[in-house]
Nucleic acid binder design. Structure first.
Lengths: 357, 357
DNA sequence: GCGGGGGATGTGAGCGTTCACACCCGTCCC
DNA sequence: GGGACGGGTGTGAACGCTCACATCCCCCGC
């Protein structure tokens, strides 16, 4: 009677549409299952007429290869699991978007598994995240859990990673991609210095390694090059709240006139702390962020920040993996954009210069 | 002889660690492969001593069941593909986070596939996203592509969805979860009205269906209940930019003193438009957002908004799916939080009242 | 005319798992 | 004492695919 939605009751339901297999297609097309397989995998040695016939039947029957069976039989897996520790941060989610896009284009299935601080360390734990031994893995290693997972990954896994910086101790041949955060941070710092600020303070995101982060490094580079003393960076987290907490002491100090932040969320927190302390931005204090999240152009004051091409980076990372997996057929590695300083409203000339004007 | 972790590389081969299978375990434990299978699947009828022995061998050999083979053989798939159209919006990414969390707890693998406007319509296209016919699907259907995918999903798929509102034409038995946006929007509107505002305007996110969205509906409900005229909602998109563009005309009108926005990003755009038009928030204009994104408490002015428990919703959605898949073993459905109005700085008494004070 | 190459196709054996069944052996009951 | 029962276990056949190999046929060259 009613035609709609037979409600897929998992148990003894009389349904089970019995997916069409390679044998069904073969029978219908009057060829062997192997020929169908060849057509599906675009093997060269199939007669054109046969190929057409098979393709017709495939379309007619609505055949879809069963990925599981294919993988089981030792074929190409065309599936990748992304290991990441937080899908909701802008950097990670934009990178994931890029990966998914590239993966879909290459007809890969993408899985996702969230790392927590504890589990990322043991190789077995990490390996267990993957559905099939041998399946490819992509790690978004912007933070410590990510890096640990990347390091813990058994060497036999085909894998690539998006990292803050290449591991320096290890052999440099693991496929990984990164952005030149260091240069970008240096550029942002030089920009602030060029505005006449005596110095620039830095509120840092957590570093992904035991060493100081790349962005902090770049900030120090610029300060050092300008012959300025190197103040201690302030430790922030990833959230606006952590930026706010870290900045409260900072903004109370009138000699601080420029702050570079490890990301835009931190900058938001700094902005709020500044406002509460009665400091005008950019009049009394310049604040520069990092990442250029979609909101950053619209907050008040609009954030001067460093735009990072996370999506491109994600595509690039997948590209490296594809190259590893299928060296001959993989397309050229897509390039991603260079970091770019976007000047908006939250930064301006040092108060001293301003007064003089 | 050697007791410790025999490092799976069985032979002298350079690579190909040749994962240990159920047969390896069986042989080592002196039982049949089927008994191992029973142990792994915690089948009741296995002698305790046998079970212990097998478990020991499993641990020793580092055996992990091969998901592909298991799925192929008709076992439980324990894998779910999430269909969503944008991983970077706060609502979707928070929901995804909740889903992933619940899925991991239930030992499910989660895949993700991004929908674009075109592909979401044809059932075959949607079905092809899934790696195995019969594999479970979760749809995040906050927008039109999501809803179309949900509708296009062949009925034989075990699936659940997070929706803006339940489909009204169809039989209500498809498993879906939603938040009471309508009541929340009504509450926010009443709140603004209670502040003395003559009326409240609405900048809408795109509706997921052909009808007006739930949030707009709630806004209308409240206006109607208060005996106010119903102005046309303004069409926004999802981005701050679209909120900005939509609001430019709005903020130019001095009779408009309160604006409700379909999400926090739109509200950010409205805030900027207001500022450019020289309108003080909340002095001249109250702005209320929706979603309570992590940034919203830190922007200036801090956004009054409706907090939505997206993560809980995601967990709930997965819970529904699990119930569908494993009716007897599934735990009770986790509940998720009610929407909650969070009053911050961007809203206040109507200018008229304020003047009087 | 015959051996040889190679394009086009078919055959059968796995891949690692679960399912349906058969089997063994005690225990209980009549 | 024999049959029914049922806990505990083994056997073989799927599942849908790819791999390695065998086979067929046609065309070539000598």
């Amino acid at each position: 009677m009613q035609e709609a939605t037979p409600a897929p009751r998992s148990d003894g339901g009389p349904q089970a549409p019995k997916a069409v297999s390679i044998f069904d297609v073969a029978k219908e097309a009057g060829v062997s299952h192997q020929t169908v397989s060849r057509v599906v995998n675009s093997h060269p040695k199939v007669k054109e007429s046969t190929r057409t016939r098979v393709l017709e039947v495939i379309a007619e029957l609505g055949y879809t290869p069963n990925r599981m069976a294919r993988a089981l039989a030792g074929g190409a897996v065309r599936s990748v699991t992304v290991l990441t520790s937080d899908t909701s941060l802008y950097g990670a989610s934009a990178t994931l978007k890029g990966i998914e896009e590239a993966a879909r284009a290459a007809d890969f299935t993408v899985g996702i598994s969230v790392l927590d601080a504890g589990s990322a360390q043991r190789p077995a734990e990490v390996a267990a995240r993957v559905s099939r031994p041998g399946e490819a893995v992509l790690v978004i290693a912007f933070d410590a859990p990510g890096v640990r997972a990347w390091q813990a990954l058994p060497a036999e896994f085909p894998a690539a990673a998006v990292v803050e910086r290449p591991e320096d101790g290890s052999p440099g041949d693991r496929p990984q991609v990164w952005l030149d955060d260091r240069a970008a941070a240096a550029q942002a710092t030089r920009y602030l210095l060029g505005l006449g600020h005596e110095s620039v303070r830095y509120v840092s995101i957590p570093s992904s390694t035991t060493r100081i982060g790349q962005r902090a490094e770049g900030w120090r580079d610029a300060l050092r090059a300008a012959g300025k003393p190197l103040p201690e960076p302030l430790d922030g987290g990833w959230s606006p709240r952590s930026g706010y907490l870290a900045a409260r002491s900072l903004v109370a100090d009138p000699t601080v006139t420029a702050v570079l932040c490890g990301n835009d969320d931190l900058a938001l927190g700094v902005l709020r702390a500044a406002r509460e302390a009665g400091r005008d931005v950019p009049g009394d204090l310049s604040v520069v962020g990092f990442d250029d999240a979609p909101q950053s152009a619209y907050v008040h004051p609009a954030l001067t920040t460093v735009r990072l091409d996370f999506e491109g980076l994600g595509r690039g990372c997948f590209g490296m993996l594809l190259r590893l997996l299928e060296p001959e057929t993989a397309p050229a590695l897509p390039m991603w954009g260079e970091p770019e300083l976007i000047v908006r409203e939250s930064s301006g000339p040092a108060p001293s210069l301003r007064a003089r004007t």
